[in-house]
Design a protein around this nucleic acid. Sequence first.
DNA 1: CTCGCGATTTAAAGCGCTTTAAAGGTGTGG
DNA 2: CCACACCTTTAAAGCGCTTTAAATCGCGAG
Lengths: 355, 355
Amino acid sequence: MAGSARRRPRLEDVAARVGVSTGTVSLVLSNAPGPSAATRERVMAAAAELGYRPDRTASLLARRRAHLLGVMLDVRSTFHAELVAELHDAAEAAGYDVLLSTVTPTRDSRRAIETLVDSRCEALVLLGPDAPTARLTTLGEQIPVVVVGRRLRSASLDVVRSADDRGVAAAVDHLVDLGHRDIAYVDGGPGTIATDRRSGYLRAMRRHGLDDRVRVLPGDPSEVAGTTAARELVGTGEPPTAVVTYNDRVALGLLDGLLRAGVDVPGEVSVVGYDDSPSAQLPHVDLTTVSQDTRGQAENAVRAAVERLDGARTTPREVVLEPRLVVRRSTSAPRARARLTRSAVNGAAAPSTAP
Amino acid sequence: MAGSARRRPRLEDVAARVGVSTGTVSLVLSNAPGPSAATRERVMAAAAELGYRPDRTASLLARRRAHLLGVMLDVRSTFHAELVAELHDAAEAAGYDVLLSTVTPTRDSRRAIETLVDSRCEALVLLGPDAPTARLTTLGEQIPVVVVGRRLRSASLDVVRSADDRGVAAAVDHLVDLGHRDIAYVDGGPGTIATDRRSGYLRAMRRHGLDDRVRVLPGDPSEVAGTTAARELVGTGEPPTAVVTYNDRVALGLLDGLLRAGVDVPGEVSVVGYDDSPSAQLPHVDLTTVSQDTRGQAENAVRAAVERLDGARTTPREVVLEPRLVVRRSTSAPRARARLTRSAVNGAAAPSTAP
DNA sequence: CTCGCGATTTAAAGCGCTTTAAAGGTGTGG
DNA sequence: CCACACCTTTAAAGCGCTTTAAATCGCGAG
């Protein structure tokens, strides 16, 4: 019995029950003008009684517009997870449904995208796609595509991203503001995002006249980069008083490494992450980090897709959102020796926001 | 031009190009018997040339069977993420496609499930559903439903889960084996899973004649529970020599708390987690933990669904998988005073696997 | 009592693909 | 040279729903 009970009711079934045509029922259920109030009521009642649920597949096929947004993500990324949640909200507000397709170690972005296209998604939102730009461009010529979180310029794609360089710069500013001058950076490897963040660090250091203090430690986007960096820094004769990292995961690894080495954070070394991930918000971590405004990215991605679909826009658009520094307890003014330097710097820098 | 290029090619288009009927093309593309080798070749060529991709919506509608499995998950759970990856593989092997639908803070399981059903999924795989058993049972009467990771018995549902109690018991056995006797447990709050794990601990302790050493610290499924527990344990006069935790997140919090308190792990306290999450595998964490065999859960979930769909089975089935202890470096024999105890215990227990 | 008109409802043509009975061609044995 | 069997291909009927032109129905106006 389970799973094969009785066929699910169709439009025809509720029509028969009420004694009207399927067309009428369809009109009532889609809340379209035409049917009289009395009919509406009877149809609604019958539909409820039978537990009728429209078959979306048939509905999509018959309808011109599918009102379906395809989202490609990496289900293992906590950052994507947050974005997806926001995307659902934004899409719903715009009257669209969302279909999810994930990349996995055995399912590449090509497969993931194909599934979405085959399922009649009208537009695609790709979260940090790893596909080559050329392929994305080709895709964008066939269907509206919004790329989220990756910097690229293409004649056929919309892009929504966060100003990664400015985010890191804000972190550096904050540290300089606190009085730091020896500020190191743990890199995130190759890749455009990592490149942007690194150059944000470099530029900010230059702007503060700290060119000679620049120190970039090699890394990758995982905790391991952080622990490696910690070892490196602690082994050094002159460790920096602050470290900015490519992302929260690196920062977490770094924090762990420093803790094990007996280095006090933020007492001896301040640490800044990037992403404002759930882990950064944990009370025992309480990491100063840069928030990427997932809500804003989701809203803009949906808006971009909808504009394309409505034909309101046909030229590519790039939306760059301003990241926001979230100050927590992993950063503070440098102690003792460094503190002297501080007032000197403060005199030349923007007014301090520190207590 | 982007997004509205030219209509995507239909079956009819490739049929026209080859000069055959749509029926023939359909047969070729679905690799069904009938068409001659020559025709096959020409059709394939034309399809490739036009970049034809079948419209899954239409295909689903026309086909009796949709070969679509709906998976409900919480996109923010790393554990679900792993399961989803495995589910994709298992489903593909069985000739099914997967549709994902997530719960979010603003999208409850009812919504998530509706989307899947409306999209013609033939069966549902629900990862740790929070819906009341009654609702799930009703659902199971309409469509094959496999519940993963939640213990429940219902006349209409299949269940795939891991023997949580035995997993924790294995952790306790391992510790006893190493010579520990004062083994505490950090709880995961209410909920059936937490209950199972807790009772696994209690039973194992009893089995080893350690009833009087039982110590359950209150908690929840997050890192916070671990840090709280750490404070509690360190403050105590007699801290245990080993702690088993509800899951890896709790263990991570605990490790952090112990580290900050200057407690050496595993020197002074051994720690065991649960889930074998990616974080547990990080080199600087290297947590002894219990693996839930996500691969096995995914395969069994898909198998259960397929059996139902093939009509090969109509009675509910519960599959309970054996968890596997993964020994890493967060556990070792207790030192000094405890070490004496150890040989005594070892004499009575299974041969030690410690170096 | 007939007409015309607005308010409702319906009939029917798809949406793009699958599937199966039947048609069309070929080749073989009688 | 015909009948028959076999191999290919096609025609056509849906799948369940949307949509729009056209039909229907009242009803008051003329």
